[in-house]
Design a protein around this nucleic acid. Structure first.
Lengths: 127, 127
DNA sequence: AAAAATATACGAAACTTTTCGTAATAAAAG
DNA sequence: CTTTTATTACGAAAAGTTTCGTATATTTTT
């Protein structure tokens, strides 16, 4: 049985920082957050504590500055969030979703090529 | 300047019914919702009133049973939700998102073909 | 006409999310 | 050693979401 995760917006923002930088302290995460907006230190701390309680991250308390690790892989979480949106907004049609995603003209030629080659691979059944 | 919308889960569920069936009364929407789960009539009513207040739907009050219309197109809303997820979870990389979406093996051959032809069109610059 | 059914309005409870203040404790600097 | 700084713990406020009960009004049925 596979645990599912549905991080809130603020939680996802923190998760992305941990994925990007590896296990981090509250101070490190809060500093990174504050590059984009103003967030109080205890706000970040509280969020991490809640996330730990929810089982989204784990706190290593061996040092005074606790180190927080993500308990879900980035890919896995992206996949789940995408699947939730797929069901909730697109009625399960990946085709509609993909076409919306590509339709904005912001995907480069080389990326489009990569996608095409993935599709070819899928069509050949090499999952 | 373009209004953005971020319906909650419950709101999105209602929006989808209105998109699918056209302008509807509370009764109609509540009946459809109750095919999947138990929801009180006044719960649905309240949600629609809140959505009206937020500007997500408009209530036509000329009849006793008010008729609610979606104020955002399905495509437009899907696009916005997808873009929000793209930024929040995929750091803006449509390629990663699309590959996640297609990677689950649930997209049919014919749909994959359609996507490929869209990509070809994009590559030819016919937006 | 009276009773029953149907509709909206409204308040509010229960829960979640986000934010921060304050207190207690530990470490570092003076 | 005393003061300052840094850290966690905790409570709680404020806002948002979801749910429903009750009151009131209108329509339909009997």
């Amino acid at each position: 049985m596979q645990m599912t995760v549905k991080p809130t917006d603020a939680e996802l923002e923190i998760l992305r920082l941990i994925w990007q930088n590896g296990p981090s302290t509250v101070r490190q995460i809060n500093d990174l957050l504050n590059e984009k907006k103003t967030v109080g230190y205890t706000t970040t701390l509280k969020l991490l504590q809640i996330m730990a309680q929810k089982g989204i991250v784990r706190a290593d308390k061996s040092d005074r500055s606790h180190v927080y690790t993500a308990l879900f892989k980035e890919d896995e979480t992206q996949h789940q969030l995408l699947d939730q949106l797929l069901q909730a907004a697109f009625g399960g049609s990946a085709k509609k979703l993909v076409m919306q995603a590509l339709g904005n003209g912001k995907t480069s030629r080389s990326e489009l090529e990569e996608i095409k080659s993935l599709i070819s691979k899928l069509e050949r059944g090499e999952s």
